[in-house]
Write a protein that binds this DNA or RNA. Structure first.
Lengths: 215, 215, 215, 215
DNA sequence: GATGAATGAGTTTTCATTCAT
DNA sequence: TATGAATGAAAACTCATTCAT
């Protein structure tokens, strides 16, 4: 692919290129979500998009490059949606609930994206066979949650517990909500998220339900 | 593969055949755990076992058949280890704790098995691309937990919550413990399991720790 | 490609077209010399020239056409440089020496051109896989040298030898000088050429050195 | 491919494997000699051998591996044929003549091998585009010849000349004999070789023909 | 029982070429 | 004129499977 850099060092892309790239990424997301990472060959992604295989080669430097950009794209989209919901809250419990419910809301409208992302994170490996996005990839996420938990514990809002285990479990619970929604398309994800928020509110030891104005 | 049935209808297998099958399954477990499901080709499994590829073809009807038997084998082993611990308990909370802690104990000695099993369950698909062991596969597990939870709710031992969400989340929490242990080999899985038991004890609303004889 | 003929039958080309063609040919020469014929894809040639692949397609009817014109261009350049040096001489030995030393002089300033030319002559093949510029391509060259040798033999200036073998060998010696200079960039090509001239002067049996004024 | 090492560290190969490998190498030689290195794809080599593409993959680790073994094989064969002829001689001129005439004799019976070898040496490149067997590869050959020349110069058998240029030129002359024989199948290679021997005998300044018993 | 050998389908990638703008 | 975009063929390689011994 051409590589004229604009003065800012950014690749300059034409409109049509942006459209194609987005189309290919969308097709990759759909294909991976439906058939799984291993079965989402470039041929199938191209077929799904109604284009020739070569087009993908033209717009992306290779399969790895496509996947990288896909992950980056989805990650940014999700983060941009979820983070504001969290930052709006001030208490530890509020932030925890916000995190869970925001993801639940996002899943409702972007089921395939979430499934595809999970597929990639669980399967993409380097040449030595090691997971490229293993738990180490979640470290920043875990650290952020732990900090939040510790603050809540200091203030007495939360009970004492192992913050790392709690963080890992919260993330796993959210991921399982996505997977479950994929298996049961009629599943009410928002209700699931709310229920999950209650679950962890109890788990962190806060007196539940009061934040919703109940006596 | 040969399938001469004995008079009782049992498959008759020679000792050497049983040994080979076990050896191959062990090798498959190790290979899948290390390289992931997609990279665990028959060639690599055979190489790891120090045998020729053809041997696998001889003892198993094909790759799918090998994987099926592997899943069945691991599932039985785990179940046989965990179920007694659960049945020993009488209360809902006790059973919940027992389930979590028993799996944690099993993981300690059988990390590769658990990782391989998770790899397969998350990746094995049928010809149409659908997950072979999707959440539907967990239905019996979920149903069992739900029943347990409902009983606890009836008796007042547990608070009211969505039993399905709780079951899905418990299972996800256990699975994440396995994955985390795989990423961080020095992780203390037993401590993790205990912490998880506490977490869910709070989550289901039981007054924690009393079952351990505290006032 | 357009081919509007002028009234005189000459192709009419704009200045800009000539410039572009020269630029592309130069880039092709450099790319082939550096990476070899097989690795000099149009994409790489275009990249090296800082233009788009399409430009090449516009100015040349295809890859083969580009290569043809490249060969023709280089061949003309070299011939135009070398032939005058030869024609200045009158004796067979003088002409032989002039040929060798002139090419040596040309190589000094045009190493890449010579290497690229050799790459093409040795690799370009037709659809049936036959070398397009095989030894048959050298026939005129060989014939010219043979004539020269025969004249020298008639006049007694040269010993009797197989003129064809001598011609083939002279050409090979010259080509090997180019290749050697490519492998060893610090090699003194002029000295090599002079040495080669001496070598063949002995080989054709002339009493050496006398033409340089020695007694 | 399997890799059971014998106690000596040598790969243990079955007879049938040796036969297949030889067959594939022969087919590769023929294909490269006929179509050139770049056009000798594994598919064509397999087709020429009347086998499936996969067979090559089974017996060789990859294209590079096949080519490596091919080069090694041909190089050994040629060396084993030529070296004894050289060592039989005692004088510098005798050895020079022997080298040339021996190769000429070998070419007569193994034209395709020589052409294929030349094709590979001139075209095989590493990932950076550098010739894998450039002139550096000929260094041992050149050094050997230089040593021979210097000895002859010391003893007064040969005139003074640049030994490196002479060595490079001798080798080039031999190679050109092979190429010429490829272009003109009816060419008398033995006569060519003898002529070449005479040529270089004059070139190195020895009084020619005396070693053949003339007064 | 076990193995080496062979096959053909499927994967990613590179590339010359064509075309609309 | 020039370019970006798209195509499809061919390449090397991997792999599950089949088969004769």
């Amino acid at each position: 692919m051409r590589s004229e850099n604009s003065p800012t060092g950014q690749k300059r892309r034409s409109v049509i290129e942006d459209v194609r790239r987005a189309q290919i990424i969308d097709s990759a997301v759909a294909t991976i979500a439906e058939l799984g990472y291993a079965n989402a060959s470039l041929a199938r992604i191209a077929e799904h998009a109604g284009i020739s295989k070569g087009v993908i080669a033209y717009h992306f430097a290779g399969r790895d490059n496509l996947v990288d950009q896909l992950v980056e794209h989805l990650y940014r989209e999700i983060t941009e949606f979820v983070v504001p919901h969290i930052q709006r809250e001030t208490t530890a419990v509020g932030r925890l609930r916000a995190r869970i419910i925001a993801v639940g809301g996002y899943v409702g409208a972007h089921r395939a994206e979430m499934v595809a992302l999970a597929e990639i994170l669980n399967n993409l490996r380097d040449a030595q066979g090691r997971l490229r996005y293993g738990d180490e990839f979640n470290e920043p996420l875990y650290r952020g949650m732990e900090e939040m938990f510790r603050a809540g514990q200091e203030s007495g809002e939360l009970r004492r517990f192992d913050t790392r285990v709690m963080a890992v479990t919260v993330q796993a619970a959210i991921d399982s909500m996505v997977a479950y929604a994929d298996s049961y398309p009629d599943h009410d994800v928002d209700a699931h998220a709310t229920e999950l928020a209650d679950l962890f509110e109890h788990a962190v030891g806060a007196t539940p339900h009061q934040h919703r104005g109940e006596p």
